[in-house]
Computed example of a mutant assay.
Amino acid sequence: MMQQPIHGAIDYAELQQHGLAPSQIYDFSSNVNPLGTPNFIRATLANVDLAHYPDRQCLALRAALANHHACEPAQLLIGNGSNELIHLIARALLQANDYVVVIEPTFGEYAYASSLVGAQLIRYQASAETDFQVDVVACCRLIAQYRPRLVWLCNPNNPTGSYLPAQAIERLQAACAAVQGYLVLDLAYADLVVGDRGSGIGDRETEIGDWESAIGVEKSLSSPQSPAPNHYTIYLYSLTKSYALAGLRLGYVVAEPNIITALRHWQPQWSVNSLAQAAGLAIMANPTWLAQNLGQWWTWSDQLRVELGQLGLRVLPSCLPFFLVEVQNAAQTRSALLQHACLVRDCSSFGLPSFIRIAPRQPHQNQRLLAAWRTLCSPQF
């Protein structure tokens, strides 16, 4: 059995060992909005009655999301973060010895959840030499050869920030449909992509618009686009990154009703607490907030990329505000920066021992990271 994946964010036991308090740490390891939780969500949560059980079916939130996605509530399942939903998908749809294709490097829970069911993992690995761009033709060959029950794809991808445009997604959808397998399309970061940020993928604004039209992805909650139904595609969404709700956990799946019914069978009652449901409804009632504030997030990210590059570091192109930085030894770099109260993501667990992932924070925090790196000032990092 695989070991549980390693994730970013603060490890409180580790900080205890180093004699550090969580309040001292500048966390660049979590891909969470550096603007923090919006005030309209905080105000909503203050009025939630904690004495009552949550709505076990999330009826109000499902209705709001169904209206947003122009689908039926029966096509939606709300989860305690997308992590729970990943495990529900694996449990509900996989059997022992089913083939599963994982397009890597990517979020470790896809492979882990599949392995817990006894599935056989077929791994496609993108390389640093091509800035982790995915060879869709090679992926389609794997799908035709192994006829997998599931194909896991994070797009835009974590941790690499790579992106597959509409035509590539359509090819993967067609390949999955041909073998009656499901493409699980994790869109946790889709609404963070704006304009051309030098990722080397061309006119991303145009491509994203084409992608929305093709597969029904909304760039932000203010978008009027409706999802295009696809029987063999399962769309996975997260609200924790964009709205800084990692402590609440909130995600959802859009899929055919029979898939939702199968997932619901495995989900515990009251899985989504009242605070998370209230936060989701507040987000739906304020659909333009992210679009209005996303530019600030990107400005801080662009500034940090430039300044890291000025230190002589190789910063990889990314269509997302977070990005990879090449180092000689990721574990050593993480450890050295932690001594300066800066936590970065060692990407060794992604199979990338010479890369760390940086999620930008606000300018004064970013300057703390830059100062720490200047202090290291050693070629071995």
Score class of each variant (00 low, 15 high):
residue 1 M to V: 12
residue 5 P to W: 01
residue 6 I to Q: 14
residue 21 A to N: 10
residue 23 S to D: 07
residue 23 S to C: 09
residue 23 S to N: 05
residue 26 Y to P: 00
residue 27 D to G: 03
residue 31 N to T: 14
residue 31 N to V: 12
residue 33 N to I: 10
residue 37 T to G: 08
residue 38 P to G: 11
residue 39 N to V: 14
residue 40 F to V: 06
residue 50 L to D: 15
residue 52 H to M: 12
residue 53 Y to N: 11
residue 55 D to K: 01
residue 56 R to V: 11
residue 57 Q to I: 02
residue 61 L to Q: 04
residue 72 E to Y: 06
residue 73 P to I: 05
residue 78 I to T: 13
residue 82 S to Y: 14
residue 82 S to L: 12
residue 85 L to S: 08
residue 85 L to M: 11
residue 87 H to P: 01
residue 87 H to K: 15
residue 89 I to F: 08
residue 97 N to E: 13
residue 99 Y to H: 15
residue 100 V to P: 00
residue 103 I to S: 08
residue 110 Y to S: 13
residue 112 Y to A: 13
residue 113 A to H: 12
residue 118 G to H: 09
residue 135 D to E: 09
residue 136 V to C: 07
residue 140 C to A: 14
residue 140 C to I: 02
residue 144 A to W: 04
residue 146 Y to I: 00
residue 147 R to C: 05
residue 148 P to K: 12
residue 152 W to S: 11
residue 154 C to G: 10
residue 157 N to H: 02
residue 159 P to H: 01
residue 160 T to K: 02
residue 162 S to C: 12
residue 168 A to C: 05
residue 171 R to V: 00
residue 173 Q to N: 13
residue 181 G to K: 04
residue 185 L to M: 08
residue 185 L to T: 04
residue 186 D to F: 10
residue 188 A to W: 08
residue 200 G to H: 01
residue 201 I to N: 13
residue 209 G to Q: 11
residue 212 E to S: 13
residue 215 I to F: 13
residue 219 K to N: 03
residue 220 S to P: 00
residue 227 P to C: 06
residue 231 H to E: 14
residue 234 I to Y: 10
residue 235 Y to K: 15
residue 238 S to Y: 11
residue 238 S to M: 09
residue 242 S to A: 13
residue 244 A to E: 07
residue 246 A to Y: 10
residue 246 A to N: 07
residue 264 R to G: 05
residue 270 W to P: 00
residue 270 W to S: 04
residue 271 S to N: 08
residue 274 S to W: 00
residue 285 A to P: 00
residue 287 P to Q: 12
residue 292 Q to D: 14
residue 293 N to H: 15
residue 297 W to S: 00
residue 298 W to D: 01
residue 300 W to T: 02
residue 301 S to R: 10
residue 304 L to I: 12
residue 306 V to T: 14
residue 309 G to F: 09
residue 315 V to D: 02
residue 321 P to S: 05
residue 325 V to L: 02
residue 336 A to D: 13
residue 337 L to K: 02
residue 339 Q to W: 01
residue 342 C to Q: 14
residue 344 V to Y: 06
residue 357 R to H: 10
residue 361 R to L: 15
residue 364 H to P: 01
residue 366 N to D: 07
residue 381 F to E: 00
